[in-house]
């Protein structure tokens, strides 16, 4: 199949990229746009390391063909902070030890933001459930839960 023009908004900026329509959104972001903050952990939608927002919804970018974001608004970890001003969830992860090796962190932060947008004061169990699509091997999740709880208080 030939390459096609895919036009979409990425982190607030309109872009047109020529790509194979079935290229994974993950690869489009990383290879064509050099947005390497979005990570590949498993390539099958299991680990959540590649989580981004498409039209405000949290998705695994390894499962989305590029053509599917035609005309959509996409947001990645690079679009989360406001310039030098970190998002409250980023600040909280930084302060509370929510990031260790950091490879799951971009996806985990996207998932935490999605969770808080839906539910501004989640219970402990709701946080556990809300982040269950994002795997972390370092933290045992405990400091991530604390990070989310503290972010709610900001």
């Amino acid at each position: 199949m030939k390459k096609v023009d895919i036009f979409f908004t990425i982190n607030g900026v309109k872009k047109t990229v020529s790509a194979h329509p079935m290229k994974r959104l993950l690869d489009l972001l990383r290879e064509e746009l050099e947005l390497t903050g979005t990570k590949e952990g498993c390539g099958e939608g299991e680990c959540g390391a590649c989580s981004v927002f498409v039209e405000g919804k949290l998705v695994n970018s390894c499962l989305i063909p590029s053509l599917q974001v035609q005309g959509c608004e996409v947001k990645t970890i690079e679009g989360v902070a406001d310039g030098e001003q970190l998002h409250r969830v980023q600040e909280s992860f930084l302060k509370e030890g929510g990031a260790q090796c950091g490879i799951c962190t971009p996806g985990m932060i996207m998932a935490a933001i999605a969770l808080l947008e839906e539910n501004s004061e989640p219970s402990y169990e709701e946080i556990q459930e809300g982040l269950a699509g994002n795997l972390c091997r370092c933290t045992g999740y405990t400091k991530i839960f604390t990070s989310v709880v503290k972010a709610c208080q900001k």
Partner: peptide, 22 residues
């Protein structure tokens, strides 16, 4: 003391460069 993680900011902003990012 709980000082900030040295490379923490790069990790929470996605700026850290892992091998596949190079």
């Amino acid at each position: 003391k709980d000082v900030p993680r040295k490379e923490g900011k790069d990790k929470v902003t996605g700026a850290s460069r892992y091998i596949d990012d190079i």
